[in-house]
Amino acid sequence: MPEQYTDVFAYDNLFAGPPHVIAKGVIFQGSGTFKRGQLVQYVSTNAAGVDTVKPYVGGETDQPYGVLADPVVIVTTTQLASIYLSGEYNLAALRIDGTIAVKDHVEKLRQVGLIVKTVVK
């Protein structure tokens, strides 16, 4: 699926800047429940051109790819999902699988167009 520009999204604390983002439909690989704001990493692209992603775990060789746009519940092994490929995000609203902190991955996120900010209320 090609990238799409969108101006339709939920106003919540995930965004920390202008609401212009690039969204993309993907196949989400994993098991369990994943919340909006989960960071994902690229796995592969199928013959139809659809990317497969999985939760970003922040390993040394892992690269972030996007941010989960909506909650996903995976009952089998994959589920269709939407991700954001760019934008400005609230540090406190982003999620990473495992025991690592998002704040330790700000540079990697910036390299792929995901800008992380600390939002003061």
Rank of each mutant, 00 (worst) to 15 (best):
A48F: 13
L114K: 00
M1S: 15
Q111L: 08
V21M: 06
G58W: 04
G49Q: 09
Y11N: 12
A23C: 12
V40I: 08
K117I: 01
A47N: 10
F34Y: 14
H105E: 08
G58T: 05
Y84G: 08
V119I: 07
G32A: 09
Q38S: 12
G59Y: 09
Y11E: 11
F28L: 14
P71A: 11
P2Q: 00
H20E: 08
S44H: 11
V73W: 08
A47H: 11
I27N: 11
N13G: 06
I100D: 15
A16Q: 00
D62W: 03
V112T: 04
R110T: 07
G17S: 00
T61N: 13
Q4Y: 15
A47Q: 11
D97G: 02
G66W: 01
D70R: 10
K121H: 10
V116H: 04
G37I: 00
G66H: 02
V116I: 09
L91E: 11
G113S: 05
G113E: 03
V119S: 01
I27T: 15
P19A: 12
L39W: 12
A93S: 07
P19C: 13
K103E: 14
P2G: 09
V119C: 07
H105W: 00
G30V: 11
N13S: 15
V119P: 04
P18C: 10
T77Q: 06
Y65F: 11
R36I: 09
I96Q: 03
P64E: 02
V43D: 04
T99E: 14
Y84W: 15
F15W: 13
K108P: 01
G66F: 08
G25S: 14
I83D: 14
T76Q: 12
Q111G: 05
A93E: 03
D104H: 02
T118C: 11
D51E: 14
V40L: 05
V50I: 06
A10Q: 09
A93M: 01
T52D: 00
K24A: 10
T118P: 06
K54D: 03
A101D: 10
Q111M: 05
I115A: 06
I27R: 15
A23N: 03
T77S: 11
Q41R: 07
Q4T: 14
A16K: 01
A101N: 14
G87N: 03
K24I: 11
G59M: 02
Y65S: 01
I96M: 13
F34M: 05
T77F: 12
I115E: 06
T52L: 13
D12M: 03
G37P: 06
S82F: 13
N46W: 15
H105F: 09
F28G: 12
A93H: 03
V120N: 15
G17A: 03
I27F: 13
